[in-house]
Amino acid sequence: MKLMTCPVNGTRPVSEFVYWGEIRPMPDPDACSDDEWAAYVFNRNGAPGVKKEWWCHTPSNTWFIAERDTEKDFVLRTYLFGDDR
């Protein structure tokens, strides 16, 4: 059983969670070039590595951020939005 640690509810089976994709900062649509905007809209980074991702603990609807190594499938840490230190 894979485990994921929710910052509020603790360590739970990963079946209680949903994955909502990598955190991708949006470029300013008024200031960026068309290429930058198209890359933001259409392109996703599939290269393995440490990524920040949105996850949600569905029974409590707790959204949080997980830093996950997508090559080794290893979760380095999880924290609530705004608690990044």
């Binding site: 059983m1 509810n9 739970r12 089976p13 079946s15 209680e16 603990h57 569905t58 029974p59 409590s60």
Partner: peptide
């Protein structure tokens, strides 16, 4: 899948049971 034996009653926990939150 959550192990309730790790809890000391009374306790509140949010989990998934037969796939239902």
């Amino acid at each position: 899948a959550f192990d309730f034996s790790t809890l000391a009653a009374p306790a509140l926990v949010m989990t998934s049971m037969v796939g239902v939150g």
